[in-house]
Amino acid sequence: MAGAALAIVAVALAFTGPHLVHLYDTTVAPCATNGDCPTATAAFLRTDRTLRTWLGILVLVLPGIIGVFWGAPLVARELEDGTYRLAWTQSVTRTRWLAVKLGVVGAASVAVTGLLSLAVTWWASPLDHAAANRFGTFGQRDLVPLAYALFAFMLGVTIGALLRRTLPAMAITLVAFVAVRLFATSWLRPRLLAPTQLTHALDPNRTGLGSSVSGLSGLLRGHLPAANLQPEPPDIPGAWIYSTRIVDGRGHALTSQVVKADCPALAELNGPHPSGSRVAGPVPEEARQGLANCVTKVGATYHELVTYQPASRYWTFQWYETAIFLAAALILAGAGLWVVRRRLP
C-alpha cells in the first residue's frame, strides 16, 4: 500500500517536474539579462504552489504515519492479540525476533521516506532555488526526513512494547513524535551551531518606523507599544535569519524613548490618524524626509545587527540533525529490545 501511494506521487512528480525545469530555464535563469528578476521569480514561484505545499506536508507527516502505523502496533498488537505466545516459542529468541523486525521494517521506513524525499527534493529543486530559502523547507527535503522516519518507527515500537495496547500506543506515539519534532525544530536546531553576526550602518532607505506587539501579554494589554525604528530584513540569499536588530556599540537595543528624544518630529507621525481611518495612503514627502533624518541621526550611535546562519551551513545542519535523530532511534531500539527481553510479558 505504501508502495502504491509512493508510485502515485512519483507519477505526478514525473509529469509536472520537467515542465518546472523548462519554466525555470526560460524565465528565472535569463532574468538577469532581461532585468526582471523580482517579477520573473515571483511569477515562477506561483507555479504549482499548492502541489509544492502539499508535497512538503506529505514529507513532514510521512515519518509520523510510519511511527503510528508501522511502529506502534509491531509489538503492541502481538501482546494484545496473544500471538506473542506463538511468535516467541519458535526456535528464535525473542530478542532476535524483534531485532530482525526492527531491521526489516526500519529499513523499509527509511527506504520509503528516502524515496519520497528524493523525489520531492528533485521535483522542487527549481522552485527551491528560486525561493532561496533552504532553511524554510529544512524538514521536508534531503536527508533529515529519513532520520525522522527511523526515529518515529523506533519510538512507536518502544511505546507499543511499554503500553501493550495498540490504539493508546498509536495515539501516544503521534503526540510524542510531534512534541519531539517541535522541540527539535524550535529549540534544538537554532542551538546546533553558533550563528554568524553581521553589522552595518543604518540605511535610511531600508529602515522604517513601526511598532510590533510582542507576545501574548502585549496583545492582552490591548495597546501598541511606542513606535521604534525597524530595519527591513537583510537580503542574504538562502540564509536563516534569527534576528535583525538595531543596537549601539555596547550591544544595547534601540529603545522607543531614544527614538522619541532624537526625533521629536516623528511623534506626530506616530499619533492616531486624524480621520480615524487606517487606510494607508501614500506617505507624504515631508514625513519621509523626517524619517530619513531621524535614521541618520540615530545611525550616528546605532547600527544594524543581523544574527543568522549562512546558506552554506545548510548541509552541516542536515547532517547534525540526521545524526541526532538516528542516535535517538538507536537508543529507542535498544530500549525496545530491553523491554521485550526483560520486562515482558
Binding site: R85, T89, V92, T93
Partner: peptide, 18 residues
C-alpha cells in the same frame, strides 16, 4: 537460546494464530 526453544513445541491457550 534457539537450541532450547527448538526442543520444545508449545500450543498456547486459545491457540493464538495471526
Amino acid at each position: 537460546g534457539p537450541a532450547q526453544l527448538a526442543r520444545v513445541g508449545f500450543v498456547a491457550q486459545d491457540t493464538p494464530t495471526y
